[in-house]
Simulated assay, not measured.
Amino acid sequence: MMRGMGNMQNMMKQMKKMQAQMTAEQAALNETTFTGTAPDDMVKVTVSGEKKVQDITINPAAVDPDDVDMLQDLVLAAVNDALAQVDAKTQSTMGKYTKGLQ
């Protein structure tokens, strides 16, 4: 056997182990839920780690037929808050695997 083959096999084992860890962590992240809120908790939006909206709760006080624009803004704020949480968690969880990669 040529010198270096052991190193190559060792490196392949390490890569497979890291890939399994990445897959497990991604699956756990996908199962996690994130709740974004608008100011004063007027609107709450729950999304999965896969960025799928699972629930929207609207405080009745936020419903003003004469100001639908405000309600739309509250929903957008809550959705964007939840998605930002998913992005932050994804970066903190999965970022360690992509450090140094372009």
Results as ranks from 00 to 15, higher is better:
Ile58Thr: 13
Gln9His: 00
Ile56Arg: 12
Gln72Ala: 10
Ala78Ser: 15
Met22Pro: 01
Thr23Trp: 01
Met8His: 00
Met15Gly: 08
Val79Glu: 05
Gln9Asn: 02
Asp69Tyr: 05
Asp67Trp: 03
Gln9Val: 06
Met22Glu: 01
Ser48Gln: 02
Ile58Tyr: 08
Thr23Val: 03
Thr35Lys: 09
Met42Glu: 13
Glu31Gln: 12
Ala77Gln: 15
Glu50Met: 09
Ala28Leu: 04
Met8Gln: 06
Asp41Thr: 14
Asn59Asp: 15
Asp66Gly: 13
Ser48Glu: 01
Thr33Asp: 09
Lys13Ile: 01
Val47His: 10
Thr33Met: 08
Ala82Pro: 13
Leu29Cys: 09
Thr23Glu: 09
Val47Asp: 05
Gly36Lys: 08
Asp69Glu: 15
Gln21Arg: 00
Ile58Lys: 04
Gly36Phe: 03
Pro65Cys: 15
Leu76Trp: 13
Met42Leu: 15
Ala61Asn: 14
Leu29Val: 12
Asn10Asp: 11
Gln72Gly: 09
Gln19Ser: 03
Lys44Cys: 14
Ile56Ser: 11
Leu74Tyr: 14
Ala20Val: 01
Lys51Val: 01
Gln54Lys: 13
Met42Ser: 10
Ala61Ser: 14
Thr23Lys: 07
Asn7Met: 03
Asp66Ile: 13
Lys44Thr: 14
Val63His: 02
Val75Phe: 05
Leu76Tyr: 12
Asp67Glu: 11
Thr37Met: 10
Val53Gln: 10
Ala61Lys: 06
Gln54Ser: 00
Ile58Ala: 08
Val68Leu: 12
Glu25Thr: 12
Lys16Leu: 06
Ala20Lys: 00
Asp81Pro: 12
Asp66Phe: 07
Met70Glu: 03
Thr32Glu: 14
Asp69Met: 05
Leu29Tyr: 07
Glu25Lys: 14
Gln19Arg: 00
Ala77Asn: 13
Gln14Ser: 13
Ala82Tyr: 07
Ala62Thr: 11
Gln26Gly: 06
Leu71Arg: 06
Asp73Glu: 08
Lys13Asp: 02
Asp69Ile: 00
Asn7Ile: 01
Asp41Gly: 10
Pro39Arg: 07
Ala78His: 10
Ile56Gly: 09
Glu25His: 13
Asn80Asp: 09
Pro65Phe: 12
Thr46Asp: 03
Asp69His: 06
Thr33Gln: 10
Asp67Lys: 02
Lys44Met: 13
Asn80His: 10
Met8Ser: 00
